[in-house]
Design a protein around this nucleic acid. Structure first.
Lengths: 224, 224
DNA sequence: CTGAGTCTATCGATCGATCGATCGAGAGGA
DNA sequence: TCCTCTCGATCGATCGATCGATAGACTCAG
């Protein structure tokens, strides 16, 4: 077997379409009602299956949550590396990270709400590995901020606090964004970049950023 | 009866000390495990009571959540009015609001995490009234921001987006603040004010803010 | 081509545990 | 005798998870 689809706990191949329906139903319900507020039967109904069949496509309910989080964070960390890899200018790196964060948290707002808000539902067994992924992502931000400070381009009164404030600000998008709102997502991303650089005390005039490459990367990697 | 203590659903007076222990236990558990992740028996154990006795001090579990949220938001709205009432300078109003938010979200981080994160657990019957309180608080922020923009002192590219970003940034404090961290709360408040004004595009030199009155107001009103 | 065997996908029924909530009873002070 | 406070016992409902069974598609030896 040279190409493997999704597998359950036994390593058996499964219908990808149904497996994806289960994942999507879980993301929607976990995001709107919370992990503990979502029952197995709610999940089954939303996926159009019986609760027994559900277990053909997943391990435990918590393993389903973990796999959703891991997939989401993996994609995010990879993308964060990509949008900062070949950008020597630290302000350009911050700009790309903000744009990436805004685009993903708006377009995948249900998924990101689960990742950001349900970590506390994880058991001590699974939590550290998810936290580690999140830390890896945040380290990418910190590195860009630190570099900008060292070169005198950014002047926050505290680098660490600035990172935390910045991330919370950008993650908020997932809690209120609506595609029918008064601003397009591109406009929102631009405004967030502007606010972020103001927050970081960027010195001097900042060139108008080109967010198109980031947007295209998001469109390519989150096209499910 | 000229002075009434806490009352349960029947309007009967109760021991204030025990009632407060129940509330505190609920705040701690709701904040760390979430509303749906907290069982009635967990609550009873944390409060040092049987699950039956618990119902002597509360209505339903959801009514307990609602009363926690309402009390917290009432206090916050009142304080927001107080710290902006006699301040003609819009930048001073924003400064005070940021400081108030930071102080309360750090010192009462469990309570504010419940208020900010468990609104989705409310039934359609209770949700609108809590949302209305939150909107009232946010309107206070928006008014200060708008005023600052109208006078040319603030230049965010969008007033509404700036309000949302600002509030999310400040609320984040409740998710990571620790009294044993490298910064005192006063230092954090100062840094947040600075970041907030940068985010809002404050023009010209901003005078060093005096946060002591806000801190004292918080100490006075949240002294339980 | 056929028939037995294998594997995937599905479900109704049901497990023991826990859920939120209530009951009646009792203890103790006013 | 009331009233406040407390609890063990228990209610029906729902929880997450598993069971055995079944239908259908595919595999492969005869």
């Amino acid at each position: 077997m040279w190409l493997s689809g999704p597998v359950n706990k036994s390593g058996v191949e499964m219908s990808q379409a149904t497996a994806r329906r289960v994942r999507q139903a879980a993301i929607e319900l976990f995001a709107t009602r919370g992990f503990h507020g979502t029952g197995i039967r709610d999940l089954a109904e939303a996926a159009g299956l019986s609760s027994a069949t559900l277990y053909h496509y997943m391990g435990t309910k918590e393993e389903l949550l973990v796999s959703i989080m891991r997939a989401s964070l993996d994609r995010l960390v990879t993308a964060a590396c990509q949008v900062t890899a070949d950008v020597p200018d630290p302000i350009g790196r911050v700009t790309n990270l903000v744009a990436l964060h805004v685009y993903t948290h708006a377009e995948q707002q249900l998924e990101t709400r689960v990742v950001d808000g349900e970590i506390r539902a994880l058991s001590p067994e699974h939590r550290p590995r998810i936290i580690a992924l999140r830390d890896e992502y945040e380290a990418c931000w910190q590195s860009a901020i630190d570099d900008g400070c060292d070169r005198g381009l950014l002047r926050p009164s505290s680098r660490g606090v600035a990172r935390l404030a910045l991330l919370e600000m950008c993650s908020g998008i997932a809690r209120w964004y609506s595609p029918t709102g008064p601003f397009t997502l591109d406009e929102l991303a631009e405004r967030y970049v502007e606010m972020a650089l103001g927050l970081l005390g960027a010195t001097g005039p900042v060139p108008a950023p080109d967010l198109a490459p980031v947007r295209e990367l998001v469109a390519a990697n989150w096209s499910d």
